[in-house]
Nucleic acid binder design. Structure first.
Lengths: 226, 226
DNA sequence: TGGATTTTTTAGCTTTACCTAATTTTCAAT
DNA sequence: ATTGAAAATTAGGTAAAGCTAAAAAATCCA
């Protein structure tokens, strides 16, 4: 008597795995170890879950070859990422959160909110297509804009480029960038890209000059338009 | 090596049980059956959980006698109820939810949000002390205003009373009241309380007269002040 | 090519939270 | 005081999601 038209929602664990595969896998597939490291679980747990994801039709999986998402898995991942980024935007813009605190809270909330909540939140926020880090927000239909931005360390001296996003993994870096207003939407002129020590020297709109070491230059993404 | 100062958060199931005991128990204790009916689980599951709640120090429990909350359990229940009511207020006032939709969403969210989120939300909402149904919102410290309101069916003809809250169990009733603006904060003059058929006849501030049958008259709470 | 190392899987176990079926206790009514 | 119904508990079982330890496959490298 199970009604196939009513599909039960996936558990939050399943969602975490799908998201991890999406984020790690890119085009190809994600390895057991990488997923285990990202989710802080044992590799054995990942092996188990890969089998279950396949049974659920969310991933393709071949023993010893890692897992990749099916179309349904991809849609599900993008749905969660949409939720996550909209929630982050709300926390930052309406509740006064700062960069550090946002990620953890959004990680929990994205599994608890309904689609209805998500779309109303999108409306409240004015249907943004980027979150405050500059990451694109997938559409409600599960499409994601292609991203032609690249890492600042790959820029060429003389270019004038727009910051498209900043990596959101390291809170201290986010603070550093926030303090100096190196945030998505700002234009930079590239003064020098020094291969010797991977330092990139840039000038912002106010003429302020910054020398960014390797780690910082790889945390800022830029592109030609804004 | 378990650090007793770091207390792990309770699962959402534990929270559901504590809330149910609080809502059903009042002063005394809540019975296995009542909790089972409210949470839509089997009585056997409730018996199990009662034992676990006692081991966790959240409830007192004696076989065949039901369970009542300890001080810690009471504080935990009020914390969840605070979250729930603040979230409902937010959904109604900022996201355009209507009465029906609100409860279910809040029920899920209250287990996912942090205390930090809750307090920021309270700030955004202007630290309300009542939710839109008129239910008092517990303080962050775990205190709850004593409620001296009573059910409309216990009013006496001639009194002038203020609607303090409306029962939030039945969505159709909430709609009925909402449509007629019979909401917390409105004053009513009691024209007649007919014991024959339990119909209560009231007049609102605009002189509109309503005859409310037993079910409706028990869903509206009133008191002398506002 | 053959070891050594890393990665992955398998096997078996734990906890949480639920269930059904059977049994026991309580309570109310004769 | 007994009994019958309602309520509660116990016993035993399931599924999800995790774990460790041991075995197997893949990869790297000299």
């Amino acid at each position: 008597m199970t009604d196939p038209t009513v599909e039960k929602p996936y558990s939050s664990s399943v969602g975490d795995y799908i998201k991890a595969i999406w984020e790690l896998g890119g085009v190809g597939s994600a390895s057991t170890k990488d997923v285990a490291d990202r989710l802080l679980v044992s590799p054995a747990s990942v092996s188990n879950m890969f089998v279950r994801l396949q049974e659920m039709g969310l991933a393709e999986y071949e023993r010893y070859q890692g897992a990749s998402l099916t179309e349904r898995g991809r849609v599900e991942a993008l749905r969660l990422i949409r939720r996550h980024r909209l929630i982050e935007t709300f926390l930052l813009e309406h509740l006064g959160y700062d960069w550090q605190e946002v990620h953890e809270e959004a990680e929990r909330l994205e599994h608890a909110v309904s689609d209805g909540f998500t779309e109303r939140l999108a409306q409240l926020l004015g249907h943004p297509d980027r979150d405050p880090h500059g990451d694109p927000i997938p559409s409600a239909e599960g499409t994601l804009e292609t991203d032609d931005s690249f890492v600042l360390s790959q820029a060429i001296a003389g270019q004038r480029l727009c910051i498209s996003k900043v990596r959101d993994e390291d809170a201290a870096m986010l603070d550093y960038f926030g303090d100096r207003n190196l945030v998505p939407g700002r234009w930079l002129r590239i003064r020098e890209v020094r291969s010797l020590d991977d330092v990139v020297i840039v000038e912002d709109e106010e003429g302020e000059v910054y020398a960014l070491g390797e780690a910082l230059a790889r945390a800022i993404f830029v592109r030609n338009d804004c």
